[in-house]
Design a binder for these strands. Structure first.
Length: 107
DNA sequence: AACTTGACGTGAC
DNA sequence: AGTCACGCCAAGT
């Protein structure tokens, strides 16, 4: 009713991820008024508008999921993250260092 | 206009 | 370690 569609609400949450931090799909989906699985959250992220920091979303273990279907985009995501000072281990984000959970912020 | 298909995970078993 | 259920929506046919 007076709430955004789950997808739009997800984008709102992604906008709140601070610079230099990174969140997992599952955590984001769980935070919504109507929680969804990480699977669904991922699908919604595929349609993320340009004004949301989509690159600050990765799999829980730090994998840049987008690289799976578009290696080029994966490279760009890594570049954007490193530009914010996000540390990498091999080809993954060091999630322990930068993990952002919306429940921790209680914005 | 109805139906099918594809789309950036995660944890439980 | 492999399989499976979970649940949404838009573009194409």
């Amino acid at each position: 009713m007076d709430r955004l569609s789950g997808r739009d609400e997800l984008f709102e949450v992604v906008r709140k991820i601070p610079r230099g931090r990174c969140a997992g799909y599952g955590a984001l989906g769980r935070y919504l008024a109507n929680p969804v699985s990480g699977f669904i959250a991922g699908k919604w992220m595929a349609a993320a508008p340009s004004d949301v920091p989509w690159w600050r979303v990765a799999a829980k273990d730090g994998t840049l999921v987008v690289a799976r279907r578009d290696p080029q985009l994966g490279i760009e995501q890594r570049r954007l993250l490193e530009a914010e000072g996000v540390p990498f281990v091999e080809d993954r984000v060091n999630m322990e260092a930068v993990l952002w959970d919306p429940f921790d912020e209680l914005d």
